[in-house]
Design a protein around this nucleic acid. Sequence first.
DNA 1: CTCAGCTCCTGCGGGC
DNA 2: TGCCCGCAGGAGCTGA
Length: 289
Amino acid sequence: MPELPEVETIRRYLCSCLVDRCISSVRLARKDLRFPFPARFCERLAGARITALKRRGKYLAIFCVKDDTSFIWLVHLGMSGRLLWFSEGADGLGIDHRHVCADMVCGGALCYDDVRRFGFMDLCAGTDMDNDCERLRHLGIEPLSNRFNGRWLWEEVSKKSKSSKNSGGKAIKDILMDQRYVAGLGNIYVTECLWDAMVHPMRKIHDLTLDECEQIVKGVRKVLRLAIDAGGSSLRDYRQGDGSLGYFQLMLRAYARAGKECLRVGCDGTINKITIGGRSSFFCSKLKT
DNA sequence: CTCAGCTCCTGCGGGC
DNA sequence: TGCCCGCAGGAGCTGA
């Protein structure tokens, strides 16, 4: 499931393959993924030169120039999307859930495979992705930026959450999963970060201490950095840009470990599983709610 | 305005 | 052995 570390891994790899290369043509196996492709999708991309690849949350933004006009090719991988680079080119559109092929002038090809088709693509005019891309406008802060810190979580998020009518306050897990607060975390990494910070996922944001918020932020940073270094987590469908596996799944401490022993040194707890917001949540049995 | 719950989709694994 | 059912996931939509 591509979350921030997976998208960042793909971005770093594809930068070396795509930057300063030109798209000769784009082929589609169908007219939609989760949403329909934008109008004249293939025509607009054909002939464009790729200038940069950036990431925002779980989105990959491919910056393009065509006829002196800049635009952004926005890609979201959903839960099973893969962006794969073939330096010798690729055919096979339509097989193995391959939905998009962008053939490059250099002879290589960038392909998009997606079994479940939860992913989607968009084209946005301009060069300022945060303002020019409709889908990025509502996103919260980047968890690896300095703006994401314990005091922000403790004061700003808690305040915003308190001002809503929700009397009980939101669970910290729901806060971290909500892309409007923090952009890029999904179920796996939120689970791992909270295990690292020793905070129960059901704890209400109002009830957390500043110190606990600091621990959560530290956990988020640590887990994301380790996961990026490991090339992401290949739990089911995820692959890196060259088709190879990521390795962070071997380092998971809580996710999908229900009933097993807690791996914290000196802890004799076990990993419990509950459902929060319709998603599986795993945590050490020794943590208090 | 918020928010819980539903929806999209397919492959896999458990149970009978 | 084979079939059926439920689960996994992100984000947008709906109705309260």
